[in-house]
């Protein structure tokens, strides 16, 4: 068994309005920071998981995303896997 770390990005789907992002954009504008055209906010989820190889780690991460971490109606996800260091 090897240990992998999955770095998962969950973002609201493009066609869905993101009120949190809008609120943050407003905050940035209030700061006087110019040129921020759009803010969208999502989540970063980190999993540490055991798997025999990378293919199995991919499979487990996808299962976690599809079955719990992500609601496909409102969110998209991407992830990167790497072997745990040390």
């Amino acid at each position: 068994m090897k240990v992998f770390v999955a770095e998962i990005e969950v973002m609201p789907r493009k066609e869905i309005l993101d009120p949190q992002g809008k609120a943050i954009a407003l905050g940035l504008a209030n700061l006087g920071l110019e040129g921020v055209q759009e803010v969208r906010m999502g989540k970063h989820i980190q999993l540490q998981l055991q798997a025999t190889d990378e293919a199995e780690a991919v499979q487990k991460t996808e299962a976690a995303c599809r079955q719990l971490l992500v609601n496909a109606i409102m969110e998209d996800f991407t992830f990167q896997l790497h072997p745990q260091q040390g």
Binding site: I16, L17, P19, Q20, A23, N71, I73, M74
Partner: peptide, 16 residues
Amino acid sequence: TEAGLLEGALLRNLSR
């Protein structure tokens, strides 16, 4: 909706 017994999803209110 999360359990799949009803369709769709409930998102954050537009007004925040």
